[in-house]
Design a protein around this nucleic acid. Structure first.
Length: 485
RNA sequence: GCAGCUGUAGCUCAGUUGGUUAGAGCGCCGGAUUGUGGAUCCGGAGGUCGAUGGUUCGAGACCAUCCAGCUGUACCA
């Protein structure tokens, strides 16, 4: 009566913030990436990739301290004790690449890349700790025409992905303008650096909380849904009023940034991009540290219903801006650059819900059933499968336990297979195979009451000469997916 | 980080004021049916009740601490 031995049983669970990718997610992503790449290639950009790991200091992070060695980024110590980190975006690694290969790079340097990036922070709905970005950058182009082109390319990409004009907008602003506003309300000095940061963060939340919420955040602070209090920037009433007025009008006196924005505006209009595609927007803030001039953001304007049936505003699906200081970190020499990233994972979810992707699911394979289990027969089944594959038809031989024939059809049914091929001794003697149209049979099954009736009917099934197998299978498949096979 | 909510089978959940051996549906496996998918019927496996400590004759339930998850918020290069 020995007690049952306890063995360690790990819980099957994903690390939080990470997700497995389904066949349809992978196919949808591939489809998207191909479309984006096509646009970037048209604009004359070339692919360049960097690895997922970089030295932590190259990413511009402080070395991890002993208390929280992974704050924000995933970091680990290499066997030579040097800290390395998983990249958290594609821009910082590109700056490293440019600085390291500066001699061999022909400026302006126009490149794109897509890949996984990692952020070690709390995940939320639609926010993961691993996600894919698609990035394009022009390095060595100081003028606003490079920024204008980025905006145009973003707009073209949205449309190439099937997002209708009017369902997206590229919002453009300039960090210099925002700095000018803060100077105007008297918080331009070094002693107010923290306050400026709070003000920028407050403005950035306009689409989330509205003018009212932003006013609260600029002033005393704001209570969230759970009742927790967020401290505000501490501006007085008059200052708050001025900031709100700026957000609503975009007016700032005599500012270099305003001129730059006006030039971008002229450029994109001249190129045929109207306000419904690229729009100057004073509330667009974006990344607070490294941007030095124009910033831009791609926003989806439609609601999406998620799997729980709730309406969700997707909002920003990509953004970027000018980062003239990032390469300089490595070289001392100023190297202007501008670029943007698209959040592929986020955008993919939105497009899938919209029905713009994965409409044509790959058809499940034809299954060749196993009736006789002797080696010779198995070889014959495998040969049928091969002939189907050679004709470009997805096919497989049943690989499970073939003892119970019903299980084989159950398997095929659950996978959504269109056809099962059956050949037992009876058919073989006649030189035939049975083609069973499972999709047609499913329709018939709905009208049948008893199992006996169903079993006897051998629904939607017909014999063909073995030599005609491929042609007959193709005939049935064409009924379901036309030209796909 | 802060705040709110929630942890019971693979999944979704029930479990009465604290009371015997912790249940259901779905899913899974086997059988009815060794040559035919769905439906039906029968049987089976699957649980340290998130963890530890406490209160109690007795805790899945009550208390404390911790952990995890979800939601909001903050941070986000």
């Amino acid at each position: 009566m020995a007690k049952k031995q306890k063995t360690f049983k790990p819980k099957a669970r994903l690390p939080r913030g990470f997700g497995d990718r389904s066949p349809s997610d992978i196919r949808a992503t591939d489809e998207m990436v191909a479309k984006i790449r096509k646009v970037y290639e048209l604009y004359g950009f070339d692919p360049v990739e960097t690895p997922m790991f970089e030295y932590t200091e190259a990413l511009g992070k402080f070395l991890p301290d002993t208390d929280r060695p992974n704050a924000g980024v995933f970091s680990l110590q290499d066997d030579d004790d040097q800290w390395v980190s998983l990249r958290y975006d594609l821009t910082a690694p590109l700056a490293r690449h440019v600085a390291e290969n500066f001699q061999n790079i022909n400026l302006p340097y126009r490149t794109y890349r897509n890949g996984w990036v990692f952020r070690n922070e709390k995940p939320g709905p639609g926010r993961f700790r691993q996600f894919m970005q698609f990035d394009a950058d022009t390095v060595g182009a100081p003028g606003v025409q490079a920024d204008a082109e980025m905006c145009m390319m973003m707009a073209d990409t949205m449309e190439a992905l099937g997002i209708a004009r009017g369902d997206y907008v590229i919002r453009v602003n300039n960090r210099k303008v925002l700095d000018g506003v803060m100077e105007a309300i008297g918080i331009g000095g070094d002693e107010d650096a923290d306050k400026r940061l709070s003000v920028l963060r407050a403005i950035d939340k306009l689409d989330k909380f509205g003018t009212e919420g932003v006013s609260l955040l600029l002033g005393e602070g704001r209570k969230d849904e759970s009742g927790d209090f967020t401290k505000g920037a501490g501006l007085n009433g008059e200052q708050t009023k001025q900031v709100i007025a700026y957000i609503e009008t975009g007016d700032v006196d005599g500012n270099e940034g305003v001129t730059e924005l006006a030039n971008i505006d002229k450029l994109v209009r001249a190129a045929g991009y109207d306000e419904d595609r690229i729009k100057i927007d004073p509330s667009c803030v974006r990344g607070l540290e490294y941007y030095t001039g124009p910033v831009f953001e791609a926003e989806l304007l439609f609601d999406v219903t998620n799997e729980k049936g709730q309406k969700v505003q997707f909002g920003s699906v990509g953004g970027g801006g000018r980062y003239d200081g990032l390469v300089q970190r490595f070289m001392g020499q100023a190297v202007p650059a501008t670029g943007f990233s698209i959040g592929v994972s986020r955008l993919m979810t939105a497009l899938k819900n919209l029905g713009k992707l994965g409409a044509e699911e790959a058809l499940a394979p034809v299954v060749v059933c196993v009736m006789d289990r002797d080696t010779e027969s198995l070889g014959r089944y495998q040969k049928m499968v091969q002939s189907l594959r050679e004709a470009g038809i997805r096919a497989e031989m049943f690989q499970g336990n073939p003892k119970n024939f019903g299980k084989q059809l159950q398997y095929a049914d659950r996978r959504g297979c269109p056809i099962a091929i059956i050949q037992g001794a009876d058919e073989r003697d006649k030189g035939e195979v049975q083609i069973k149209d499972l999709l047609e049979g499913k329709k018939i099954a709905a009208e049948i009451e008893s199992r006996e009736e169903w079993t006897e009917a051998r629904a939607a099934q017909f014999p063909v000469p073995e030599a005609d197998l491929v042609a007959e299978v193709r005939k049935v498949l064409n009924r379901y997916c036309g030209d796909a096979v």
